[in-house]
């Protein structure tokens, strides 16, 4: 179908629906808002999206990267109206019905984009798109962040994407991939995020990197070079 974006009315009605769900409603998603001219309008440029099933957030990001490529918008990642419309389109996947027909939408910003810090990256669709497209992690480096199903934001994504100085630094992201992604199983390694002070884990990695950043020009380094600076507590994760 043609890509559209919500009007203010559309956003408010979608928001009201989320509130109803939190109050225990079992109503079906108001998909009629997607095409109603009072609640949605056209976007600049031509674009089509299908209502298809995605197995992971990476699948979704890859698909949206392609589908949104022809939208004429120099700040697509902050377009509240577009991302909210897309959220409703894929609502059965980002907020699936449970056995008793209720749904658990969580906070509004998971479905209605609140651009920028601190919630922009937590939008379930836009957050994945940011990692894949805007931060440019593409296929390989996105895997550590986006290997979860659509309704689930991984803790790795939560911890790294919220820190602009880390997520925008390719060398640091390469280092996290080398440390915490298991290429043999094509999955994140187990135990990456546990207690805050456990040696070698992601929380410690973030602390150490923030210290190193005061002394070293980390932006000029490759992932390998960043790994060389890490203390021995990270050795068991290398390799």
């Amino acid at each position: 179908m043609e890509i559209r974006k919500f009007t203010y009315e559309g956003i408010e009605r979608f928001r009201n629906y989320l509130t109803e769900l939190r109050n225990g409603s079992t109503s079906a998603p108001p998909f009629d808002l997607l095409n109603d001219p009072e609640t949605s309008g056209i976007v600049n440029g031509e674009g089509e999206v299908e209502k298809r099933i995605f197995s992971t957030r990476l699948d979704l990001a890859r698909y949206l990267d392609h589908a949104l490529a022809s939208i004429e918008n120099d700040s697509i990642e902050t377009d509240v109206h577009l991302w909210s419309w897309l959220s409703l389109l894929y609502f059965d996947q980002v907020c699936p019905a449970q056995e008793n027909a209720t749904r658990n939408p969580g906070r509004d910003y998971r479905h209605i984009l609140e651009p920028g810090y601190p919630y922009g990256h937590r939008h379930l669709l836009c957050g994945a798109y940011l990692v894949y497209n805007t931060y440019g992690l593409r296929e390989n480096l996105s895997k550590l962040f986006l290997s979860t199903p659509l309704p689930i934001e991984s803790k790795v994504h939560h911890e790294l994407a919220t820190r602009q100085s880390l997520i925008t630094n390719k060398g640091i992201i390469e280092a996290t991939h080398m440390l915490y992604y298991d290429e043999s199983t094509d999955k994140p390694k187990r135990g990456v995020i546990v207690k805050k002070n456990k040696p070698g884990t992601l929380y410690r990695f973030i602390d150490v990197i923030q210290q190193l950043d005061l002394n070293y020009d980390l932006y000029s380094m490759s992932g390998e070079e960043v790994l060389e600076l890490l203390p021995t507590e990270f050795n068991k994760w290398k390799g």
Partner: peptide, 13 residues
């Protein structure tokens, strides 16, 4: 603005 010593393998600010 950063001034970086690149005489060693890892650039130091």
């Amino acid at each position: 603005v950063k001034v970086v010593d690149k005489t060693s393998s890892h650039g130091r600010i």
